[in-house]
Amino acid sequence: MPDPSSVATFFTTHAALRAEKLLQTADIPGKLIPTPRHLSADCTLALEFPSALQDRVREILDRHAVETSGMYCLE
């Protein structure tokens, strides 16, 4: 069974792309995906990453003032 994934959603494309770049720099596997419509309609792009790294992802985004509109565990 694959590791569970989490999704961060954003208010702007800028924030989503910046988050992707920050995760890359921190060697965290992150992938931009079309935002699932049931989660958010704020921004077209969302960022998927392993749920086990949610705390680290939160910490990195906070430190760089990248605002999220939500963070969800995918079923």
Binding site: F11, T12, T13, A41, C43, T44
Partner: peptide, 11 residues
């Protein structure tokens, strides 16, 4: 803006 498109007011 390509964002918050559900709102008719400026983000």
């Amino acid at each position: 803006t390509g964002s918050r498109s559900q709102h008719e007011i400026q983000p």
